[in-house]
């Protein structure tokens, strides 16, 4: 029987992985808090925040509209065929609106923004790291977290809820399109069900999720880029590609995990 050393002992492996996980979590947490506090440091970087809102928010509009519309439409179809089995197709409006506002809106919006803006952030900051641009900022006595991360975080906190709202509205119209115009749910019933079933509480819950997702996604993506140089298995361009990949994967997984946790608290 081979002797266990610290290298191959399975318990040690678990321990090492746990320590690594906790360390990373701690670092990312500190990164987030520093970035968040620095949003409010004077002078507020309004120009940069607006620029990032444009990048994260405005430029994601098309993607969000498309995904929102088709998500709503497919919900309309699926909902209709399921609900007719119980003769409850009149509830299609409620089903579409609630699932969108409470779950699909925030989650799908977050994942779409990860794909569109999050990957770009990780790659951009990663390249700045490996080409010493972040070191250059430090030598100029410019706080790189304030300069690079804070405006993106602020912009995400602003644009995630707004994009989620757009997603929800377009999705509800998508459901209407497939449910009422293509199939036979009456238009009046669809919208009256939407109105009567959606409570302010649902909308608030959706927004809270959107804000939390925004913070999580941008923190993970920027953090991965920012820490590109500490990767042990990849340097240079390879490091950037790995940072981008892990930024996207970790963000998406975390969005779903956080969604579950938040839902259990919000319900």
């Amino acid at each position: 029987m081979p002797a266990y050393t610290l290298e191959n002992n399975p318990l040690a492996l678990i321990g090492r992985f746990t320590i690594f996980l906790v360390q990373e979590l701690g670092r990312a947490g500190i990164f987030f808090f520093r970035g968040f506090l620095l949003i409010f440091s004077l002078p507020v970087q309004l120009g940069k925040i607006v620029q990032q809102v444009y990048f994260i928010g405005m430029k994601s509009m098309l993607v969000i509209c498309l995904t929102g519309a088709f998500t709503g439409m497919v919900l309309g179809l699926q909902g209709y065929y399921t609900l007719t089995k119980f003769g409850a197709e009149g509830f299609l409006g409620s089903a579409v609106a609630l699932s969108l506002i409470r779950e699909l809106g925030p989650v799908l919006t977050a994942i779409m923004i990860v794909a569109r803006a999050g990957s770009a952030m990780a790659a951009e900051i990663g390249i700045m790291r490996i080409s010493e641009q972040i070191d250059a900022l430090e030598t100029m006595d410019i706080n790189p977290i304030r300069f690079l991360f804070s405006p993106r975080l602020a912009a995400a906190l602003i644009s995630f809820p707004l994009l989620t709202a757009v997603f929800d509205v377009i999705g509800i119209f998508g459901g209407f399109l497939s449910g009422s115009l293509l199939l036979n749910v009456s238009q009046g019933i669809y919208f009256s069900r939407v109105e009567s079933s959606v409570l302010m509480q649902d909308i608030n819950g959706g927004f809270i999720k959107a804000i939390v997702f925004g913070a999580v996604v941008v923190t993970i993506c920027c953090y991965q880029g920012y820490m590109t140089h500490t990767r042990k298995e990849g340097f240079g361009a390879k490091g950037v590609s790995q940072a981008t990949t892990s930024a996207v994967v970790i963000s998406c997984v975390l969005v779903l995990i956080v969604d579950y946790v938040l839902t259990s608290f919000l319900l």
Partner: peptide
């Protein structure tokens, strides 16, 4: 330390210009 840092400038080997 910040005060001191402001007196410094550093020119990097690879220029480290902000490419965007």
């Amino acid at each position: 330390r910040r005060e001191l840092k402001r007196k410094f400038s550093y020119m990097f080997q690879g220029s480290a210009l902000f490419d965007s």
